[in-house]
Design a protein around this nucleic acid. Structure first.
Length: 339
DNA sequence: CTTCCACCGGAACCGTGGGAAA
DNA sequence: TTTCCCACGGTTCCGGTGGAAG
């Protein structure tokens, strides 16, 4: 049944990709100047989750590196590294062989100075989940580094531009925008077929079932592949030769729950209490939420901190904030569902 | 239209913890 | 060892905002 589960991992980047030729060509052309040793424009990759932004960006940069040996690349996920220090540290850590900078206590701007003075081959920095970046000013600093070209992956470009200050926004507006649309069901089937052929034994899953998985995924490749993975894993445990309709049926909700749980795990204890309260209500006003939170925990955080938590959860798409000031309500978001 | 009110979020500040230098 | 410097989560303070009430 399962031959090689690596091909079902979320971060796996296939050698061949399907259905994204225009986007690949567009990004390649933006990065092309690097091949001649010139700096490339910043690229803005946007689109819904599971539309291939990360995968295609990595793939295209890899292609470029194969053709041009003296181009480097760095991938930074702002979900994991969301402060200015963490982003700069991650980039520097990957670009230099000497790791003599240890976390903290290095003089104030030594990280940035090092990056500015770096004179290696041109380097593409893929900044993923830029929405999660706590300190957007670091973008401005990175834009000023000649030897680094940026590929910024973001859910919604306009939303990001609205949140940064005018100086940064005007520089970002001139970036090249590449929009990804959600996959169609047919496209998802092709993607799943590729993965299944590599990860599973021959004929382990039927066309019909791939279609069922793709149909339930609502255009989200991440959900689709996670569903395939869970269905295969369960079939493997059952010692089955083939994935049955029951395996698929079970895997559909499990896959969504798995992806949602991953977000929840990133929350602190206090943040989870707040999320639970919101989840228990259809929707709740801040004026009711704060006292309820305070009654449930020892040493509650200040209301200002709770507001920061709420903002973070909104960014994680765990919670929706509706209305403004007076009629503000918070609502927990169900796991992403097909629309 | 003006005032009020609840809430939002920026900015400055603080305490803590850990590595580096003295 | 002590001292210094830094990042970082949290708090305090406060001006801005927009709908509701007067």
């Amino acid at each position: 049944m399962l031959r090689d589960a690596r091909f079902l991992r979320e971060e796996f980047v296939p050698r061949e990709v399907v259905h994204r030729d225009p986007e690949i060509n567009h990004l390649s052309s933006v990065l092309q100047p690097l091949a001649d040793g010139r700096p490339a424009d910043t690229a803005f990759i946007s689109g819904p989750s599971g539309s291939g932004k990360t995968c295609i960006s990595k793939y295209t940069v890899e292609q470029l590196k194969e053709e041009n040996l003296d181009v480097e690349s760095i991938y930074v996920n702002c979900w994991n590294d969301h402060s200015r220090f963490q982003v700069l540290f991650r980039i520097l850590d990957e670009v230099t062989s000497t790791v003599d900078i240890h976390r903290q206590s290095t003089p104030r701007d030594v990280l940035f100075d090092r990056l500015r003075d770096h004179d290696g081959p041109p380097c593409v920095v893929i900044l993923d989940e830029v929405d999660q970046l706590a300190d957007r000013k670091v973008l401005y600093e990175l834009l000023g580094l000649q030897s680094f070209s940026l590929v910024l992956i973001v859910n919604d470009v306009e939303e990001l531009l609205a949140e940064v200050d005018e100086r940064l926004a005007s520089r970002l507006r001139s970036a090249e925008r590449i929009r990804f649309h959600a996959y169609t069901t047919d496209e998802l089937v092709d993607i799943l077929r590729e993965r299944a052929d590599r990860a599973l034994t021959h004929d382990a899953i039927s066309q019909e079932q791939l279609e069922a998985i793709a149909d339930e995924a609502g255009g989200d490749a991440r959900v689709a592949i996670a569903t395939l993975k869970l269905a295969a894993r369960q079939a493997d445990r059952d010692g089955a030769e083939q994935i049955t309709t029951d395996h698929v049926k079970q895997a559909v909700p499990d896959a969504r729950e798995e992806l949602r749980q991953k977000n929840l795990d990133a929350l602190s204890e206090h943040q989870q209490v707040i999320y639970e309260i919101i989840e228990e209500h259809e929707s709740i006003a801040p004026g009711d939420l704060y006292p309820e939170y305070r009654s449930r925990v020892d040493n509650p955080k200040s209301d200002r901190t709770v507001r920061s938590y709420l903002k973070k959860m909104v960014r994680y798409n765990l919670v929706a904030a509706e209305g403004s000031t007076q009629d503000r309500r918070y609502r927990s978001l169900a796991p992403p569902s097909p629309s």
